[in-house]
Computed example of a mutant assay.
Amino acid sequence: MDKTINIKGKLVSFSEPWVMGILNVTPDSFYAGSRKQTEKEIEERIRTILSEGGKIIDVGGYSSRPDATDIPEEEEMARLKVALEILRKHYAEVPVSVDTFRSGIARRCVEEYNVGIVNDISGGEMDSAMFETVASLHVPYILMHMKGTPQTMKQHTDYQDLMNDLMSYFSQKVNQLHYLGVCDVILDPGFGFSKTLEQNYILMNKLSEFAIFELPLLVGISRKRMIYQLLDSTAENSLNGTSVLNTVALLNGADILRVHDVKAAVEAVKIVTKLKNTL
């Protein structure tokens, strides 16, 4: 059975995986090549994502890298506004998600800028009003696993059993969201968040176990430390490693790839889809 979600009244299917292009409007994202500050840079990034086959644009104004600087809500919104104005004015038909853990930001983005999806790295843990807000907005919600905050997550890598703990976390959160009336939930295991290098690869190896939830599965490993630390490299030189892991993720059930490099991810989707269709 194909997994589906309702984005602004349109039912979309993941019979073939989607690629989500990252649009960073932060000055301090871990991957310097992804930072877009001016209107011109933002417009060029949007055009690149779409021309290379991206289906969703994920806009973020708060860096979630380890030890990132905490910024006020007003500053996060001011960063987002520039990109959201362009998207609303010129790309209204394109599905847009906002990467935020703040319910006030989520509400403004949906109500004022027609954003269609809320992407919350904290799973509602950093803003207790988030779940009820998403329920009232009637938008899909990307539920990610993280312990602590971006500033403290490196200190929270202790698990009784990694996969059992994650399964319990998602089961509890999904039930809570469904109870509140959130119909469309996308799971994100949170690669790189509150997980050691070893734990990230255990998680990738067992990714297919999330199929038990029968919900769309998002994987975001693009140019992350789990790649360049293992390869003794840098984020800037991690495209090949990213493509390898994206392919593994697709083979293990990923429905959405959240990436910096859209073209490479779209090619991975095409090849894996072809392989699966020849079985």
Rank of each mutant, 00 (worst) to 15 (best):
E85A: 00
Q155Y: 12
R107D: 04
N277C: 07
V269Q: 04
A83Y: 00
T149M: 06
D28L: 05
Y201S: 12
T157M: 07
A211G: 11
V262P: 00
M226D: 13
E74I: 09
Q199G: 15
L187F: 12
E73S: 15
N240Q: 14
C109Y: 01
T4C: 15
K224H: 13
K81G: 02
G9D: 00
V118L: 02
R65C: 08
V174C: 06
V115N: 03
M130E: 07
T242W: 02
A211V: 09
M126K: 09
V94A: 00
F131C: 04
S238V: 15
R225D: 13
T278I: 13
Q155T: 12
V110M: 03
V115F: 01
G104K: 06
D158T: 05
Q151E: 10
M130C: 09
K206C: 08
P66F: 09
N205T: 11
K206F: 05
V12S: 11
S243G: 09
V59C: 06
L197G: 14
G53N: 12
K8L: 05
I212E: 13
G123Y: 01
A106N: 00
H138G: 07
I42C: 01
L50C: 07
T273L: 13
T100F: 01
I121N: 02
D161Q: 12
Y169L: 12
G60L: 06
P17L: 07
M126V: 06
I86K: 00
L80C: 04
L166N: 11
K274C: 12
I121G: 02
R35K: 14
G104M: 04
L279P: 10
E209Y: 05
V269E: 02
A268T: 01
I256G: 06
R79W: 02
I56S: 10
A83F: 01
A92I: 06
A265F: 00
D158F: 06
R35E: 13
Q37I: 15
Y31L: 02
P189R: 14
K154Q: 15
I271S: 06
A264V: 05
D165R: 08
R108T: 13
G53V: 13
L180P: 08
T26S: 08
D2P: 14
R35F: 10
P27D: 11
A235W: 03
A78Q: 11
G220A: 07
E236C: 09
S64G: 07
S168H: 11
L207C: 12
N200T: 14
T196Q: 07
K55V: 09
L230Y: 10
I121S: 05
G104F: 03
D261T: 01
S29W: 00
R45S: 06
I46C: 03
L215Q: 08
D232W: 11
F101Q: 04
E267A: 09
V82I: 13
E16D: 10
R258G: 03
I71E: 03
R258F: 04
A264F: 01
K3N: 04
K36D: 04
G104E: 05
M144Y: 02
R65N: 12
S64V: 14
M77D: 09
A254S: 14
I57E: 00
G253C: 05
